[in-house]
């Protein structure tokens, strides 16, 4: 492994320490729990708080989306491992400004269980908490089992819109409804070219042979729908657009937001190579790209690969996406 490490067991604590040191203008560590990152605007009285959490290794997600008019609190887990129930609970407490807390997180077994227990703890303290569970990863389950799909980069759009709704004075139900609409309107797909390695394990936990690609790969290397020879970038871009839009089934003329993210070890320039063809393919299907994002927004350690997320927009989602906000990741 060619990695910047001290003791691999300390890598998450050191990541968080460096992150809050670098971005102290926007975030801080919770005094109660060193695994909770709080926005400097967290706990604003009378405003709905918005929290999330997940395993580490996806930086800048999840911590990088805490900020002004963005997430109030983020529960931090070990690499690719859900935060504890206590940490989710402390994040909920940190996000609470008396108007309730929306927990917007991804559909993974560990997160579901830990959030479920955190909700029980919060209920004892009379904090109103509601959840939205992201399930935008098209290849993780067929359309008729959408509740089994995992949450991936569409979570960023879910957070952005939910947080904007809270910033604009929405009540808890309105924030939840906006975030739910955002994720319902999102579809994502990933393509992996090389696996990632947990530092404490020391070797990749799955394999992608040289010259091959895994189409539909998940955010932790979960297998996709096809393993096939690595095609040229234009063909991969068109394939990803086809997978997302075939599942989406949007009427011609729809406006969309597009997010292309690297998975950690793909050079940023290649994301633009992909985007160039993706945008043409999306427009060729009669859709209008209202706002694109291209960069490393939601990664998977050192995986080589990229994800594409397309969110269908309406007037409300456009307003919420455009609402002024600041956070380290975007």
């Amino acid at each position: 492994m060619q990695r910047f490490l001290n003791d691999p067991d300390d890598v998450v604590d050191e990541t968080v320490a460096g992150f809050v040191r670098a971005h102290s203008d926007m975030v801080r560590l919770s005094a109660e729990n060193p695994r909770v990152v709080l926005s400097n605007w967290a706990g604003t009285s009378g405003r709905v708080g918005v929290g999330t959490g997940g395993g580490s290794g996806h930086e800048p997600a999840f911590i990088g989306y805490a900020g002004r008019n963005m997430l109030d609190a983020v529960a931090v887990g070990e690499l690719f491992s859900s935060p504890t129930a206590k940490t989710f609970h402390d994040a909920i407490r940190g996000a609470d400004g008396g108007a309730g807390v929306a927990v917007l997180y991804g559909n993974y077994a560990g997160d579901n269980m830990n959030v479920k227990m955190a909700l029980k703890m919060a209920a004892k303290e009379d904090i109103a908490v509601k959840t939205v569970v992201a399930n935008d990863d098209v290849c993780s389950a067929p359309p008729e089992e959408r509740d089994k799909r995992r949450g991936v980069a569409g979570e960023i759009f879910m957070w952005k819109t939910g947080c904007a709704k809270a910033a604009l004075g929405g009540d808890l139900d309105e924030v939840i409804a906006a975030a739910q609409k955002a994720i319902d309107n999102c579809r994502s797909v990933g393509v992996g070219l090389a696996p990632c390695t947990l530092p404490s394990v020391g070797h990749p936990n799955f394999q992608i042979a040289p010259g091959m690609m895994e189409v539909g790969i998940g955010h932790h290397g979960e297998p996709g729908v096809r393993v096939e020879a690595l095609a040229d970038a234009n063909a991969v871009a068109e394939d990803m657009v086809r997978i997302v839009l075939d599942d989406h089934n949007l009427p011609e003329g729809s406006e969309v937001a597009v997010l292309v993210s690297g998975l950690g070890a793909t050079p940023v320039n290649e994301l633009y190579v992909l985007y160039d063809r993706m945008a043409q393919a999306i427009e060729a299907r009669g859709l209008k790209i209202w706002k694109p994002y291209v960069g490393s927004y939601f990664t998977s350690l050192d995986m080589i690969g990229a994800t594409l997320t397309v969110m269908a927009l309406d007037d409300e989602l456009k307003t919420l996406l455009a609402h002024e906000a600041a956070c380290p990741a975007m």
Partner: peptide, 15 residues
């Protein structure tokens, strides 16, 4: 298990 380990095994064995 519930306050320091997390993941899936934390809550399952914790409970």
């Amino acid at each position: 298990l519930m306050s320091e380990i997390g993941g899936s095994m934390g809550p399952l064995y914790g409970m």
